[in-house]
């Protein structure tokens, strides 16, 4: 009874710091990161709420697809905060409604490309040899294409359906992740614990997924965060060529596309949806960068 207390005191580390806690503390000490995170949360919450409400036919403040030619191309006012478009639809309602689709495109496309990139990068880095050689030459070749051209061509040939758009963006933007994961695996597969697992007769897939992958989590997570705005920007670019998500479903990109015929008469059709894309993309990039800084263990000078 009496001997137990001092032993406990020495064996337990005094401040409970785990690597995760250290990263989180470093991340939340960064005002830019907090700002970006808050903006992302606002966007995601708005998208979720309007998305769920839309399922029940509840729209705020107006029905995003209700046309009223009597009030077409009205500038921002108290009734229509961000003005109305050429069919008299409320731009603010369309922005809210579009946020659900635009963010979904970002998240799902990122998930698809992450899955592919991690599996291909892991196989390439773990096995090495000719498998690695073939996979990496394919990556090199894909990186020679401007990804926007390739995505656009695939969507043009397959038809601009939202599921196709998401899949094509995901299936054609995994190359960066694959290279990164491969590089991580190349160094991690030589570590003692992986050798030990192999020596103990552990099979390959458990080694890849249970031993190596968790240790490459930080950089993979960072690329995931940065992949979301990339996909959002690509969808907006596709909208420009009328190959994005098709009207009447609003997305941030196609509101701008619809509005460009009225470029010099109705600036609000261009400015506000662009601002939404810009703010969302910027927040994801800033949070991604802050995460990268917080998870980098190597000492930076100054």
């Amino acid at each position: 009874m009496t001997t137990e207390a001092p032993i406990k005191a020495t064996s337990a580390p005094t401040p409970a710091t785990t690597p995760t806690k250290r990263v989180l503390r470093k991340f939340f000490a960064n005002p830019v990161a907090i700002g970006g995170l808050v903006v992302i949360l606002i966007f995601v919450l708005t998208a979720l709420i309007t998305g769920i409400c839309a399922l029940f036919g509840i729209y705020f403040p107006y029905d995003p697809n209700a046309t009223n030619l009597a009030i077409k191309l009205n500038p921002p006012s108290a009734a229509h905060w961000l003005g109305t478009d050429n069919l008299g639809r409320d731009v603010f309602s369309r922005l809210l409604n579009g946020s659900y689709i635009s963010l979904s495109v970002g998240f799902v496309a990122m998930a698809v490309s992450l899955l592919l990139g991690v599996v291909i990068g892991a196989v390439s880095g773990y096995y090495g040899g000719w498998i690695d050689n073939i996979l990496m030459r394919i990556v090199d070749a894909l990186l020679c294409f401007p990804s926007f051209f390739l995505i656009l061509t695939a969507v043009a040939l397959l038809g601009p359906d939202i599921r196709i758009i998401i899949l094509v963006i995901g299936l054609l933007s995994w190359t960066g992740t694959a290279r990164l994961v491969r590089a991580e695996f190349l160094t991690l597969r030589e570590t003692e614990y992986v050798r030990a697992a192999r020596a103990l007769g552990q099979r390959t897939w458990p080694i890849i997924f249970r031993h190596i992958l968790p240790n490459a989590f930080a950089p993979i997570f960072v690329t995931a965060v940065v992949g979301i705005p990339d996909a959002i920007l690509i969808e907006a670019g596709l909208s420009f060529i009328n190959l994005g998500v098709q009207p009447p479903q609003a997305t941030w990109g196609n509101i701008i596309t619809d509005g460009r015929s009225y470029l010099l008469d109705a600036w609000w059709l261009i400015v506000f949806p662009g601002l939404a894309i810009f703010l969302a993309a910027l927040s994801f990039y800033l949070v991604g960068d802050a995460l990268r800084a917080a998870t980098t263990t190597r000492q930076q000078s100054k």
């Binding site: 907006a236 990109g253 470029l263 010099l264 261009i270 894309i277 990039y285």
Partner: peptide, 18 residues
């Protein structure tokens, strides 16, 4: 720098045109 990366190119072009 991140703001410049996050700018959709066609949006900037339209703003400048306006």
């Amino acid at each position: 720098a991140f703001a410049l990366i996050a700018l959709p190119g066609f949006w900037v072009a339209y703003l400048i045109l306006i």
